[in-house]
Design a protein around this nucleic acid. Sequence first.
DNA 1: TTAACACTTCAAGTATACTTGAAGACAAGT
DNA 2: ACTTGTCTTCAAGTATACTTGAAGTGTTAA
Lengths: 158, 158
Amino acid sequence: MAQYTIRQVAEMFGMPTSTLRYYEEEGILTNVTKNGSGQRIYTEGHLNRLRTICCFKGTGMTIAQLKAFFTYEEDEEHHIDDIVNLLQERRMYVRKQMEELEKDYAHVLRKLHYYSDIRESIREGGTRPDWCDYRKRIYTDQEDGQVYVEGKNIKKNE
Amino acid sequence: MAQYTIRQVAEMFGMPTSTLRYYEEEGILTNVTKNGSGQRIYTEGHLNRLRTICCFKGTGMTIAQLKAFFTYEEDEEHHIDDIVNLLQERRMYVRKQMEELEKDYAHVLRKLHYYSDIRESIREGGTRPDWCDYRKRIYTDQEDGQVYVEGKNIKKNE
DNA sequence: TTAACACTTCAAGTATACTTGAAGACAAGT
DNA sequence: ACTTGTCTTCAAGTATACTTGAAGTGTTAA
């Protein structure tokens, strides 16, 4: 089975080696073996665990919650309800997060367009934009990074 | 103009009064006046500022970045490029966040279905699910909270 | 008048998630 | 043998964002 040093794993996950030791100490990265001279050896299983850690952390889970989850997993049969509950709660939490992020993104886009237009009015002269006109506008951000305006038929150049 | 006490504002935004004082001290909630007996008076402008703070914080901005932004806003003409740059960076950051959140959500859904099926197999008996079968499945979460499965019979190594 | 209550300041404390530093072990290269 | 480099442990330090506690002021209600 493939083996990895702490440096290699840290490299793969874009984190310092200290974080890997920290996760181990916190009990969320378990069963790390050591070679003859005491150095850590990681295997595929650890990489999978780390992927799960990164995923869950990305959804706002704390180390304590991760620990609870992995502890439940160790005694799956007995804690199956705890596991399902935890994941269900997480699902709802992430959905709420996504909704709020979308709202916040819309706000950022409005602000961005407002200030872009202000910049234009400073450079080119012309009427200074009024925030009131932007408050209710909807900007749709496409895959290509282009931004289109809805709600007011103002066509942007650029 | 409508006025609000610290308690009312805290209530509106679902935060303790201490946070409002903290934001003021950090210089991101500015121009808060006091009444005759030294108590804070908030107006509509402060509520708008707080809405912006909550939005930007929701996108992962730190207090320091918020401070920078509002400082730039005070001298808009001179810092218009800084403002636009900051907002553009924020736009990209949030888009990346949304992408990752979606991936993490998919992972949570897969895990949730895996363990739900395990629970079922424990209760009802039957074949114990294998994580390998879930790793590449796509679960689509509908508005109603129902989750539908796609690619249930997909071939691996596609 | 006295108690309750809501506010004030300011300093210190807390929670989370790491990060850093000191001191030492071990393997390879010169 | 010595130096370099990478690892080890363990304790202490850091960053961010608040939160809490002590001590005091001012307004209202009995």
